Amino acid sequence: MKMKLTFSILIKLAILQYFSVLCIAEDFDFFYFVQQWPGSYCDTKHSCCYPRTGKPDADFGIHGLWPQNEDGSYPQNCNRDNALDEDQISDLTSSLQKDWPSLSCPSSTGFRFWSHEWEKHGTCAESEEIDQHGYFEAALKLKEKANLLQALNNAGIKPDDEFYDLDSIKEAIKDATGFTPGIECNIDASRNSQLYQVFMCVDISGSEFIECPELPKRRCASKVQFPKF
């Protein structure tokens, strides 16, 4: 009798834990879709290593698709038991290597980077529509839809080591996408403010850009450098 009671309690606890994970996974207001410029990532004091597949294209690369709340908080690491399964994204691997490359050292295939993003952020967005494959596929589609480099090039803003007005960069992206971006800068060895990351907001389906309920608070100079890569 005591064993049956203990077993029953364990089952109830397991069910409770399962549903608590689901609740956490759905408890966010929107996504930040974040892309970074590789020239700025590499043009700092931090180490930069090209992927094993070779130097990436001179284009913005995906950093992540991050669940976010309007009050500035965000969920993370919502299901540590759900590690990324390489087989689940095998058909996306070539696209991920191109559009979501890892520049961290040592040189890698990118899977460790993708695993980190899934486990920290993706597990908090799990639903019937967004599983492991759906999460990465959504990010790839958003990158194609935004086409940041083309938006900036159309406005005469090119990765040529020149300095551009921060407001002009924001306006060029808004003109192309219809939505105001958040811009993050970093500092190179010469203390220049560089265009580093672009934040755009996405609805909880992970498919449509929206006006940001809350823009990230990042500091940039009024003129920022767009470094070559």
Rank of each mutant, 00 (worst) to 15 (best):
F60I: 03
T6W: 05
L166H: 13
F209Y: 14
I187M: 09
F229Y: 13
L195K: 02
N147W: 04
P38V: 07
G54P: 06
D59E: 14
I157H: 04
A125K: 07
V224T: 03
K141Q: 15
D161H: 08
E117V: 11
D85A: 13
E128D: 10
D167I: 13
S94I: 10
D175T: 15
H133P: 01
L195F: 10
E86Y: 12
A189G: 03
T53M: 02
A176G: 08
K145P: 00
I169M: 06
Q35I: 02
P181A: 10
G182R: 06
I9K: 08
K145F: 04
H63Y: 12
N153R: 15
L103N: 06
S193Y: 05
F163G: 00
Q97Y: 02
V34Y: 03
T180E: 14
G61R: 06
P159D: 07
K223F: 09
G122D: 04
R218C: 09
I204G: 00
Y50G: 00
E144G: 14
S90L: 12
C185S: 11
S107M: 08
V224R: 01
K141G: 01
E171G: 00
F7N: 09
D188F: 05
D165V: 00
D165K: 15
I210L: 09
M1G: 15
K174A: 10
K2M: 12
T93E: 13
C48N: 10
Q36T: 10
W118C: 05
A58F: 01
I204C: 02
L103Y: 03
P75F: 07
E126S: 11
L166F: 07
G64T: 08
G122M: 08
S205W: 03
S8G: 15
T6D: 00
I24P: 00
D71M: 08
Q225K: 15
E144C: 00
F229S: 13
W114M: 09
N77P: 00
H121W: 08
I173R: 05
D27P: 01
Q36V: 01
I15R: 02
I15M: 12
D99T: 07
S47E: 14
F31G: 02
P213S: 12
N79T: 06
A146C: 05
S115A: 12
A151W: 02
Y50H: 11
K12E: 07
S40C: 08
A83Q: 11
P181S: 09
N77Q: 05
G156P: 03
M200E: 06
S8H: 04
Y164S: 04
R219H: 12
W114L: 08
L103M: 14
G72Q: 09
S94T: 13
N154P: 01
K228T: 15
T109R: 10
D91R: 09
D27G: 02
D57R: 12
Y32P: 01
Q150M: 10
L92R: 07
S102R: 03
Q194H: 03
S107W: 07
D161V: 04
Q225M: 15
Q17R: 09
T93F: 03
T93R: 11
S40T: 11
I187S: 10
F226P: 02
D175P: 00
D175F: 03
E144M: 03
C78P: 07
S102I: 05
E171A: 14
G178F: 05
P181R: 07
G122F: 05
G206F: 04
S205I: 01
F31W: 05
Q197W: 01
F229Q: 13
I187Y: 04
A83S: 14
D27W: 01
R191Y: 11
E129Q: 13
F113L: 15
D175M: 08
N192E: 11
